[in-house]
């Protein structure tokens, strides 16, 4: 339907309600992908604005950076929390690892645009090549996130001395290592909860994106799209993948910079 040139115009005999028209000059699938993404923008925006609201309801850490210790009395400075990278145990390298993750995701978005562009040209070899790079970028990003989560959950060697209400409802004072949904060595427990929830929901989107990319990669490679006559599926999955990148740009700013 969407591939025929006449579908875009209105047939004079049938009129606009007679069917065979293409509203908004976009195919059904692409249109629905856009509206799904709009609803997803609202979901993520609600999460991030909730983060901002809880963030301003706590005082920020105001002391010198060298003397920073985690406490549930104030919000931590992100570059002092996310300062680890793999293979450099105990070395303070603020934000380097998350910067690498951002770089990987932006680059995978670029290779995705190149795949979509190749799809417009019906160039199967290029589509397959760029989809493979995108797939690789997505998997690498997920692996990085797994490491980041693992490090956040296990915490630092020193831990932090905190007074908090434990799972049994008792007030205890003890050294806390790492973060979970009940207590958090880096700051208020809401900080860890929001971290797990928002980056987790984003990671879930990336996971789905990786599955979709694999589907597109496989179908492009065996020639499904070529027989179909167009590479629109690559374009739709591309829209989703760019959206995942778009969300990460915001998550990066709110979680790791502010």
């Amino acid at each position: 339907m969407s591939t025929t040139a006449t579908a875009a115009g209105v047939s004079p005999k049938r009129g606009i309600w007679g069917g065979g028209n293409e509203p908004l000059k976009a195919s059904y699938g692409k249109l629905m992908m856009w509206f799904f993404l709009l609803s997803d923008i609202f979901t993520f925006a609600a999460f991030l604005v909730a983060y901002a609201a809880i963030r301003v309801s706590y005082p920020g850490y105001a002391g010198p950076e060298e003397a920073f210790i985690g406490s549930n009395e104030y919000w931590p400075i992100p570059e002092l929390v996310f300062d680890a990278i793999p293979f450099f145990h105990g070395v303070h390298i603020p934000l380097a690892f998350v910067g690498l993750m951002t770089f990987i995701l932006i680059m995978s978005s670029v290779t995705m645009v190149l795949a979509v562009e190749a799809g417009h040209r019906n160039d199967r070899n290029d589509v397959v090549k760029w989809l493979l790079w995108t797939l690789l970028g997505g998997i690498t990003f997920l692996s990085c996130q797994a490491w980041e989560w693992s490090h956040f959950i296990h915490g630092t060697e020193g831990g932090s001395m905190l007074t908090y209400v434990n799972r049994m409802g008792q007030v205890v004072t003890e050294t806390v290592y790492g973060a979970n949904l009940f207590v958090n060595e880096y700051g208020p427990v809401a900080f860890a909860q929001l971290f797990f929830f928002i980056t987790g929901f984003h990671g879930f989107h990336v996971t789905i994106g990786v599955f979709l990319l694999f589907l597109a990669f496989y179908q492009a490679a065996v020639g499904v799209y070529e027989r179909r006559g167009h590479y629109e599926m690559v374009e739709k999955i591309g829209l989703y993948w760019h959206f995942v990148d778009l969300v990460w740009v915001f998550v990066f700013t709110f979680f790791y910079l502010i």
Partner: peptide, 17 residues
């Protein structure tokens, strides 16, 4: 990349650099 033979009638448009 060694993919199966291109038997389709889809015309490959050259890259627009």
């Amino acid at each position: 990349m060694a993919l199966q033979e291109n038997k389709s009638s889809l015309e490959i448009i050259p890259r627009n650099e």
